[in-house]
Amino acid sequence: MTEAVPTVRLGDGLTVSRIGFGGMALSDVYGDSDPGEALRTLHHAVDQGVTFIDTADVYGEPRDGVDGPAGTNEELIAQLLADRRDEVQLATKFGITGEVGGAGGSATRGDRAYVRSACEASLRRLGIDVIDLYYLHRRQLDIPIEETVGAMAELVAEGKVRHLGLSEVTATELRAAAVVHPIAAVQSEWSLWSRDVEARVVPAAREVGAGFVPYSPLGRGFLTGAMTPERIAGSMLRDEPRFVEHFAANQPVVDLVRAIGREIGATPAQVALAWLWAQGEAYGLPVVPIPGTRSPHRVTENAEALRVRLDAEQRSRLDEAAELVHGDRNLSFTTKGWISADREEAPST
């Protein structure tokens, strides 16, 4: 039986479970999924105390004749919320107007009219009156971020949104946004093999009082050793050098995580998650990873990572894993500027 999952306060007074659930894994981007099994996994997560559920309007399967995000992942999660809304802290996102993993995946909008229409569409699909945490998924680079966040702040004033978040923003963008409205959370990729945010974004989040929500905390499954060439070939990662061309070269990272797991009686996933929480303590800000899975068993495994403790020597060895990584975290279907590292200024020396 999993011990009760504790809560933690992010920024702006938002309290969530110490580990969240990434809903994107329940859609077809990582291969075919079964809606019934997906809903059972969601209910199991909440049963375990993993009540911070993350989705986005762009997650899910495209529909013929639908212009923009189809929102099928939000519709799936709406079935959970219909019975358990009061138990869930719900986060969703807007801003990407093309299919994730598709040719139009890099298209973005952040104008005031779109902010409002996207929020209304998400509320309708989710079947709720208010979104707990509303993220700008990707900013439209030719619109000042202050303008987009200003439109989001109007939604808070109107009671349609409780808290604001930003995904894949630079430190400069985050500071500018926080002047307009408090930012509860920054969501960016952060894991043992994706650490660029530590240079500037993580310190900026601490500075403005935002929490950090790492997505893909298990390296899209690679750090667990579960990603085989066959599984990769059937997912949106099939053209990604880090997973395909460098598959064998990156196995030493997996071997290191496994070795430390054997030392402390933990799975590779639990080691990777424990390392992230330790990083949050080192940087002085709340960190709430949102691993995704289709398996109730994995939900339990991930939640039990909260019991795992790494000593200084183990953390030091894991810190060195970054030097073993081949390939960067950019995805082939995106354009330059898609992740914060593309736009981030070099750290001053």
Rank of each mutant, 00 (worst) to 15 (best):
A259C: 04
G22M: 07
V161K: 04
D328Q: 03
D34C: 01
V197H: 00
A282T: 05
V149T: 03
S33H: 07
P241A: 01
V213L: 13
E75I: 10
A45W: 03
E154G: 15
E99F: 10
A185H: 12
R343E: 00
L192I: 12
A321G: 04
S340V: 03
G104F: 04
S106Q: 06
I232G: 10
T335V: 10
T51P: 12
G23Y: 05
H137T: 06
A282W: 01
D111G: 03
I143Y: 06
P182W: 12
K336L: 10
L155H: 04
I128L: 12
T2E: 14
R242I: 05
D83V: 08
G127F: 13
L90G: 04
V58I: 09
R298I: 04
I128V: 15
Y134L: 10
V88T: 14
H137I: 07
E344S: 02
P347K: 01
E344P: 04
D32K: 15
V156K: 06
D64G: 14
V244K: 09
L141M: 13
E313A: 15
R175G: 10
L81F: 10
R195I: 07
A305M: 09
G20W: 13
L310C: 06
A233T: 11
E147F: 09
Q251M: 09
A25G: 05
G102T: 08
E263L: 03
V288T: 00
P229Q: 14
G11T: 09
A185W: 13
P203H: 05
P69Q: 01
R162G: 06
G13Y: 07
R138L: 07
L223R: 11
W338C: 02
V254P: 05
V299M: 08
G11W: 12
R258K: 15
P291F: 00
W277P: 02
D255V: 06
K336R: 12
D239P: 02
V50F: 09
A266L: 00
R175W: 00
G98I: 02
N250D: 05
F333W: 14
D239N: 15
I53M: 12
R258A: 12
S167E: 02
Q79I: 04
G280L: 05
P296C: 02
P69R: 03
E345T: 08
L324I: 08
S194Q: 13
P62D: 08
F212A: 10
E345C: 03
D54M: 09
A184V: 10
L324V: 11
T293N: 01
R220G: 07
Q279E: 05
I77M: 13
N73P: 06
G101W: 05
I339P: 01
D32G: 05
A157V: 11
A153G: 08
L276H: 02
Y59F: 08
R124F: 08
S17R: 14
I128F: 09
A185Y: 14
D255L: 05
Y134G: 12
A157H: 13
V149K: 09
N73E: 08
D239F: 10
D34K: 00
V213E: 13
V115L: 03
Q314S: 03
E99V: 15
